Structure formats: C-alpha cells, structure tokens
Simulated scan of single mutants.
Amino acid sequence: MQAWQGIDEFVSVVEQGSFTKAGQQLQVSTAHVSRSINALEKRLAVKLLHRSTRQVSTTATGQIYYQQCRQLLDGLLDANRTVNQLNTTPSGLIKITAPIYYGERIIAPLFNRLLQQYPDIELDLQLSNHNVELISEGFDLAIRLGSLADSSLMARRIGSRHFDVVASKSYFARCGQPHTIDELNQHNCLRGISDHWHFDVDGRRKDLRIHGSWRCNSGLAVARAAMDGIGIAQLPHYYTDNAVEDGRLMRVLEQHRPHSEGIWAVYPQNRHLSTKLRVVIDFLAAELGEQR
C-alpha cells in the first residue's frame, strides 16, 4: 500500500493548483496534503512540485509522474465502476436503430426474448435503412450490416452474413442453371441497389457487373421476384434461407460465395459502458454468433 501513499494528494494538488484546495477536495487538512507529498518525494528521491507563496507547479519530472498517476487513478475508477455495474440489475430505457427488414426478421424477435430475461429494461427500437446520427438523435445503439464507414463511434462485431445466388426451380427449368459466374451474363439478374454482385474466385474477391430487366431497392421484393420466377438474385442469407429450406428457391454458384460480412453493434464512444447496454450487446453477440 505504501506505493499508493501520497498519489491522491499529489494529483489533487496538480489539478487544483494549491495545497489548500486539494485538502478541501479530499476532505483532509492542508498539513496532511503537504506531509503526504513530502513523503512521496522522499520515497521517489525526486522533486515533483515547485512551491511558492503564490502558486504551485510541477517540475518536468513531476509533470510526467502526474500523467502516469492520472492514468492509474482513472484505471482504478474504471475497475470500481465495472464491479459496481456487475452487481447492478440492468434497467432503464435503451434506444436502438436497425435496418428495416433485418430488424423485423431478426432483431425484434431477439429483443422480445431479451426483455423476458431483463424485465426492467425498456426498449425503443426504431427501424430505418438510413444510418442515423446516434449522438444528435439520442440513440444508444445501432445495428449495422456490412462494411463500416470510418467514424468516432465504437463497434463490436456481433455476427456475420453471407450472400447466396438463388432462383426458383421454375426459372432454372426455363433458363437453365449457371455453373460459372461468367454465365450470369446469359440470365435475367434481379438488381437491388447495386449493379454489381460480389464473388470469391481463387481466394480473391471479384466484382461482376450484372444486367437484367427488373430492379427494386427492397431486398424482400427482390427475393419475392426470384420466388416468382422472374430472374436470378444475389441476396443476404436471411432473405433466402427459409425459401431454400421449403424449396421455393435453389442456391447456385456456392463455390464462389463471397466472404462473410460483419453484423455490428455500433455505439457512441464511451469508456464506461452502461450495464443495460453491455447486457444488450452481449446478448446479441451470443445469439447472432450461433446463427449462420
């Protein structure tokens, strides 16, 4: 414990600018502050402070020592907060945004289960396909898909998604199945928001420009058009898995499936993650990590 003696007093004097104010902050006498710092300097065999009747300032060594001590005290404060949060029941409102279809299909059902475990948490889930400004719009958390833009926000990967090329049996019966990605030029490719599909070829990503007579910026609408036999589509797996399982869609070109993309929990930069937010992120990571 001797190694810590005098550190609180030293840091307080540097930040308050006087022994008297440091004593008031720490609720000890000015004499106690002075004795503690004298003992600290003697133990370290260095001079940490310049003292005068008008002001107190750090020596060059004292400034370096202050910066290190400030980090130590911050770390201790973080440790204490973490322990306190572990013993605190998650409660209160948490405001979350997620993409519309993914939010409806995946996130909302998971939150229904979460609230059964933590009934003191209140949830406000706003679904939007636009990246809302978390801080200015008062959101605690965003669920985002794919590549993230650089920002000051914190992000944790909580799951992954992959893309499949699919079409209906009736379409393949009429137009045949593609066995190479180059054969897609002979097919009616259902376009979403992009004119390019992505593939893995010999371990490298290949972007292929596709063409077709049908376009919509809704992934759900693209999936339905594929099920209706209009054409062939490339979509994230959560649009197509159920239809593949019940035979409404068939996968092709699986040997060229592109590498999985991240599903992310994004939140404002804050070292002291609240108990409720930590619980939500950990729950989503556990659940989505078990899904394909």
Rank of each mutant, 00 (worst) to 15 (best):
R191T: 01
Q85T: 06
G203A: 07
G203P: 08
V222A: 06
L249H: 02
S34T: 03
F10Y: 13
T97I: 14
S128Y: 01
Q117P: 01
K21W: 07
S151R: 13
Q63G: 14
F111C: 01
A60M: 11
A39N: 12
Q16C: 14
R157L: 06
D78M: 12
F139Q: 03
D228P: 02
T59W: 14
R81T: 09
T240K: 11
A98T: 06
R144A: 11
L26C: 13
E290V: 05
Q55Y: 14
S136T: 14
G62Q: 04
Y171N: 05
R251Y: 00
R70T: 14
H196P: 00
T82M: 01
A233Y: 05
N87L: 15
N217S: 12
L253Y: 08
L93T: 04
T97G: 09
A149H: 14
F199C: 11
R43K: 11
S12K: 10
L49C: 01
L114E: 06
M250A: 08
I181G: 05
T20D: 11
S152V: 12
R157G: 03
C189W: 10
I64C: 02
K95L: 02
R205G: 12
S12E: 15
L73D: 03
T275H: 05
Q71V: 13
S194T: 14
I94N: 03
W264A: 02
S147M: 13
D120I: 00
Q85L: 08
S218T: 00
I96T: 13
L44G: 00
I107N: 07
D74H: 14
G62E: 04
S152Q: 14
E41V: 01
Q186R: 12
N217P: 12
D207V: 07
A45H: 00
H198A: 11
Q63M: 15
S29N: 13
G159R: 00
L127N: 04
S136Y: 05
C175M: 11
L77V: 02
N188P: 02
E183Y: 08
G17D: 01
S151P: 10
F172P: 04
G138I: 04
I64K: 11
Q5G: 07
K42M: 03
Y101H: 15
A285E: 10
L220W: 07
Q269R: 12
L44H: 00
L145E: 13
